[in-house]
Design a protein around this nucleic acid. Structure first.
Lengths: 222, 222
DNA sequence: ACAAAAGTGTTACGAGTACACCCATGG
DNA sequence: CCATGGGTGTACTCGTAACACTTTTGT
């Protein structure tokens, strides 16, 4: 089966930069390519947009197919379309970024059995295509949005402590925060609420558990 | 001549939302469609991406071809790709927005003789495709960026007075600003400088003329 | 001299920052 | 009773907001 057009058409893909924080390190999800071009090297998950599928749906589908991840926060980032960024044909890629909470880290490599792994953002391997450039722009956007939106909460699992949130923010910004000021700020956002439960983890005082408020997903501050 | 692929490929276009401020009103540039679909109705300028042309270059080319505009500020906005947004075939559109200074308002309708006109954002006609949705998102982005970047200066002509800048900001935000505070803020951005010249326009004190500093094009504040 | 827009400083308020001690729990 | 992280309030600082009069020009 083949498809014919009067004018040349580019191929269209989505690529997804999936962030998480694991062991106090910001990481991105990469898959190892099995087929040329760039066979064997690491790349962002993604793939071709189907002809009757929305862009968002494509990103979600590719992510699910290649990693098993589902129900996570996704946002369009930027569209990359320089001629020559793929050696096979003209490819235009709509890049998305996604945030995975720490309790959904279990990956199921796709049916094509390619390897899937979390890489610390500070120790990325060489990436295929222009994926390094895309990753850099995604990092920039993530750190920007951490400052003026509640996006950081998308990294948290369903129940979490205030100290866990603080640790997350410190990891991503690379700077320590004052505990009292951070809590005052976080609670003033009106985005989380106590669950009433507590988390006892060791030989010390248990912490109150919080959850994201219904309806408050990601909002801008200021 | 025709082009054949193993899998279906969507068509890819750019659409450009061109803003300007004229007579104290925020306006966008529209062109009247001559061909189906939506023949006769108004739409955003734009068109198909050529196979060896970058997305930015496509937006600039289409804008020049259809309106004669050149050398203006352009920025990628968002990519729209819902199936069905164009009745002919699957079309994915990378939307850009552009800002035109008040001294470049002269339009040269494209060679296909379609009408080109500035419409106040508050009195748009019915638009073709999903262009109303795109326009709304562009307006949102514009007003957002006015708050945290120097993008507003892209509306100014090569030489301008501080009062003109203030008037511009008031028109877009819809709110009056304190003259002294506004000037303090504007000058603190370190983005403009005096030309040494003055503008005498009527029976009153002439205003100092300013220009954008070299190298400072658009930067974020905060 | 008057009409019209240009230009200019000081005070007040509020948000954000700095800072140190007591609490609850398990071992 | 001790070790460990959890939890809390106040004082200061700096940036933003409020506010009104003098200057320059053309008629």
């Amino acid at each position: 089966m083949s498809y014919t057009y009067l004018h040349p058409h580019p191929a269209v893909t989505t690529d997804i930069i999936v962030f998480t924080v694991q062991d106090d390190v910001l990481k991105v999800l990469l898959i190892q390519r099995l087929a040329p071009p760039h066979e064997g090297s690491w790349a962002l998950p993604g793939g071709f947009v189907e002809i009757e599928e929305s862009l968002d749906a494509c990103a979600l589908r590719e992510l699910h197919e290649e990693t098993g991840l589902e129900g996570i926060y996704l946002e369009q980032l930027y569209t990359f379309g320089e001629p020559g960024r793929d050696p096979r044909e003209r490819v235009i890629s709509i890049a998305y970024f996604a945030l995975v909470p720490s309790d959904k880290l279990v990956l199921q490599p796709g049916s094509d059995a390619s390897a899937v792994a979390w890489y610390p953002i500070s120790a990325l391997p060489e990436l295929a295509f222009d994926h390094e450039k895309i990753t850099n722009i995604a990092c920039q956007r993530l750190t920007d949005k951490m400052e003026y939106s509640t996006i950081g909460l998308m990294f948290m699992s369903s129940e979490f402590t205030l100290s866990q949130v603080q640790s997350l923010y410190e990891v991503i910004s690379g700077k320590p925060r004052d505990k009292r000021n951070f809590r005052k700020w976080l609670l003033s956002l009106d985005a989380i609420e106590e669950t009433g439960r507590k988390k006892a983890e060791g030989a010390y005082r248990p912490a109150k558990l919080y959850r994201l408020k219904e309806s408050k997903i990601v909002s801008n501050i200021r």
